[in-house]
Design a protein around this nucleic acid. Sequence first.
DNA 1: AGAAGCTGTCGAAGCGCTTCGACTGCTTTT
DNA 2: AAAAGCAGTCGAAGCGCTTCGACAGCTTCT
Lengths: 325, 325
Amino acid sequence: MVTLAEVAQHAGVSASTVSHVLSGKRSISATTRQRVEQSIRELGYHPNAGARALAGKRSNIIALMIPLRTDMYVPVMMEIAIAAAATARTHGYDVLLLTGEEGPDAMILMDVELEDQRLPLLRQTDRPSVLIGLPADTDGLTCVDLDWSATGALCVEHLAALGHRDVAVIGEAPAVYERHTGFAERTLDGLRSRARETGVRVLHRPCDGGYDAMAVTLARILDERPATTGFVVQNESAVEPLLALLRQQGRAVPEDVSVVAVCPDQVAVQASVRLTSVAIPAQEMGRYAVEHLVAKLDGRGGDEVVLIVPELTVRASSGPAPAAS
Amino acid sequence: MVTLAEVAQHAGVSASTVSHVLSGKRSISATTRQRVEQSIRELGYHPNAGARALAGKRSNIIALMIPLRTDMYVPVMMEIAIAAAATARTHGYDVLLLTGEEGPDAMILMDVELEDQRLPLLRQTDRPSVLIGLPADTDGLTCVDLDWSATGALCVEHLAALGHRDVAVIGEAPAVYERHTGFAERTLDGLRSRARETGVRVLHRPCDGGYDAMAVTLARILDERPATTGFVVQNESAVEPLLALLRQQGRAVPEDVSVVAVCPDQVAVQASVRLTSVAIPAQEMGRYAVEHLVAKLDGRGGDEVVLIVPELTVRASSGPAPAAS
DNA sequence: AGAAGCTGTCGAAGCGCTTCGACTGCTTTT
DNA sequence: AAAAGCAGTCGAAGCGCTTCGACAGCTTCT
């Protein structure tokens, strides 16, 4: 292992000079700088992160708290994690995967609940953090999330504009509502209030992923509201079952019924019908989270809540409502 | 921040004594130990990882190299990552997410290719590592993977036992074969050789995920081998499209055709037909990887290749071949 | 009874790095 | 021409921890 001292010796300067070349915190003459950089390259020097953290009082590590449960939006989580790791690297940080509770200096929390248990502790430490997701009270916190309320609104709006008057919302699994993760409720709120404005009737049903659960849910929906012609699906793993069931019942998409999904674009284009969807910008969230965190660590930027504006992409699963018969 | 020195003072002992209580590398009297532990608790002491790494010459950090591309087996990757992180914690290690090339002391590589670019570097450093996946040459390496060859064999065997004589294999996306990730080829090898033994005819077609690609592939298969009654699907994202297409063509599962998938159990039970499948033991692999790594770091255990024995679970998608007509 | 061996504790060195104060030799100001 | 300022460099201290050698006070062996 090559140390800073060895580099210094090789370049014929003192250790502190090398350190200053590295950090740029003191001016160094061009010739000295070049000599040092040359030595660093020749010796293949890599600073020791531990020593750096010790002496410099900062760890250059960002913790990413991922939920242990793997029952939901796994692809989304993964994308966020990868984007976060990649972004962190460009800022000289590394990302630590945390499944437990305690962590290092700076952290990103995923899967935040409305009344998240971790918030009180977060607020009282001065470690910077960024939440992905919005708790009930965002005071003193930095959060990034998709604007779920606007997402919901966008979905009905699209269907309303196409003439649909009865819309069913296939929600997340009941467990998600019980956990009060917030985004599900917010979507629904946005959706309902826009529905009121546009004169659309909305029926909401939570639904577990998978074919069987979807079958039951769909039957109930069509039983209660036989005139339903529009579906908004928030649960990724309910999309394909829904399409299969509709097909099976002879309801053509998009001629008879329209489906709007909230899911990553990748899912939308791989479905059996190319789905009109509002994208979940996982990568963007991951990137934002890290960038805000780095800014905070540098003393720049304070608390803020960033809501990403949703975008709806029209694909093949939505069309004009059939003429009322 | 509470330091070891403060704990020592509070407990009325020297710093080294506290350190020994923590590490257990020297015997400490019960009374002293208790006093120290008490102080640790009262003061809320947490060792500084950086200092520890510096002094102890070991970082307690395991790097997990995840592939940047998010086009494949994302749920599997995620499960592995989470299992690895959780296991690492129980051994006092943390997991660092690496998307780039260089890393810390110990690492886990995912998504290993047959002739992986990273291997030469790996072999020449003495940093312990574990690969998830099998390269062509495993000499001097520790690897964990599902026994894909046996997996393939298991799939045909099951279909053969049910009387199927013509089996089609829906493979991974062509890109996977081009990248030579190995597992796809191995599965096929195992499958073919067992097919030969059991007198089953096999037709293999790579297939991108999604509905459209599957439709094309299926049409080609049925065109070439109209008598096909068994399907082995290795590409997770082709499963649901296949089921939808079969349904659409009036081929009942499992009465007319049987389908065996290779996918995580969760996917198998959420599909529109509960799938007979060979599970991909993602969590197990993650756990194994970390445990081997920790053993190596402790100087125990050398290089070895662990192939996890596949298990086939019979569900509702496979049954006796229809009587030849 | 003395030698030998334990056990439990301490002090000090040092891990690789950052940073602060100090110093040197200039250039600029008054 | 002396004072003041500055760019560029160095030395030393110290971050929080582990670990090694030393040693005091016992117990056990011969």
